[in-house]
């Protein structure tokens, strides 16, 4: 995973360390999305050691990856979460993210 997303072709896998100990990560990439939306930064994984949560680690990771996206020239960052993932959704909202103009739809392929 790190080799695939470690800073290549608009892909980023950033990790946070404290005292040479791994305490968190964030993964994202710049991609164009469906129905003509322009390329934007996408965050699709984020994790912080539970022992250091509420210490600003995730905020630093978020700011860092947004900085990387900006360097590439995109001006929007997006993510997609389960509607009941209140922990991560609260975090992203605390960083200023809010509901956007797209909505995810789905269908079981076995449905009529």
């Amino acid at each position: 995973m790190f080799e695939r997303y470690g800073g290549r072709n608009g892909r980023f896998f950033l990790i946070a360390e404290r005292d040479q100990k791994f305490i968190g990560f964030i993964i994202g990439e710049v991609r164009a999305w469906e129905f003509g939306s322009p390329p934007c930064g996408w965050i699709f994984a984020l994790g912080v050691d539970p022992d250091v949560r509420l210490g600003g680690v995730a905020s630093r990771l978020f700011e860092s990856i947004c900085g990387k996206f900006s360097e590439i020239g995109v001006d929007m960052v997006r993510t997609m979460l389960p509607v009941d993932d209140h922990l991560n959704m609260s975090f992203f909202r605390s960083q200023g993210m809010k509901g956007g103009p797209f909505i995810q739809l789905e269908k079981h392929l076995t449905d009529g």
Binding site: H86, S90, R93, G96, K98
Partner: peptide, 22 residues
Amino acid sequence: DSIARGTLMSITIQTLLKSIHW
């Protein structure tokens, strides 16, 4: 309802106050 509930459960008092500044 599911979307409304997810939205309301993820906006903390602090985040809403911060949004005023944003």
